[in-house]
């Protein structure tokens, strides 16, 4: 599903350059639940961004779902992010002026789905995360756990096969964190591929496999 071969990412600022990833090779199969761990600056987020098609590698090859990512245009990458990948962020990244319903609806609007399909899917997702009664609330009116559940529902809006979660429980209390992990585990059991960045061994324990990064390289 996700094949990375010799991925290198170098950030250049003026005369300085920083090698965030150094020849990372990684395969994540369909339906796997993988967690990525490592200290700050080890390249976890960079790796996630490359897997999520938010960033491109300086060198190496990335094949997603049997297609090479290199050479895709900005809008083609956007389409991949829209249909194949769902993002869950540590700080939720919900649109503050939009209601829970509207936040979930947004990826489907970008995909051009019609109103009936959107309504059905949003209702289904709100039911799944247990927040149908909160549909008209804005993010500021929701707790952290509720916001992350809305973010999860948004990530699932276009039914993507891959879910990328960057510290999904990092801003939550332990109870809300467990609820989110329960949902992620359920989604994995349903057959979705999940890649999760975390600092927390306890959270990582929910995954099948843990990849440890250090100084831009995968530890053996």
């Amino acid at each position: 599903m996700i094949e990375l071969q010799g991925i290198t990412k170098v950030y250049r600022t003026g005369s300085q350059s920083l090698e965030a990833l150094r020849g990372v090779s990684l395969n994540i199969g369909k339906g796997e639940f993988v967690s990525i761990m490592g200290p700050s600056g080890s390249g976890k987020s960079t790796l996630m961004n490359i897997i999520g098609c938010l960033d491109t590698p300086t060198a190496g090859e990335y094949v997603l779902d049997s297609s090479k990512v290199a050479g895709l245009t900005f809008d083609q990458l956007a389409a991949v992010r829209n249909r194949k990948i769902g993002f869950v962020f540590q700080n939720f990244n919900l649109l503050p002026y939009a209601t829970a319903w509207e936040n979930i609806e947004l990826p489907m609007l970008f995909d051009g789905k019609n109103g009936r399909r959107r309504r059905e899917r949003v209702t289904e997702l709100l039911n799944a995360v247990g927040l149908l009664d909160w549909r008209d609330h804005r993010p500021t009116e929701l707790s952290g756990g509720q916001q992350q559940r809305i973010a999860l529902a948004r990530a699932l809006a276009n039914d993507p096969p891959i879910l990328l979660a960057d510290e999904p429980t990092g801003n939550l209390d332990s109870k809300s964190g467990e609820e989110i992990m329960a949902i992620l585990t359920e989604l994995w059991r349903e057959g979705r591929t999940i890649v999760m960045v975390t600092h927390n061994d306890h959270i990582a324990a929910h995954s099948e496999r843990t990849i440890r990064l250090f100084d831009g390289q995968i530890l053996p």
């Binding site: 938010l54 809008d75 389409a79 829209n82 970008f110």
Partner: peptide, 16 residues
Amino acid sequence: TKEIGVKLAIGARRRV
């Protein structure tokens, strides 16, 4: 900027 980033991350195309 942040909102644009979120929209791009969830699949907004440039024309949006």
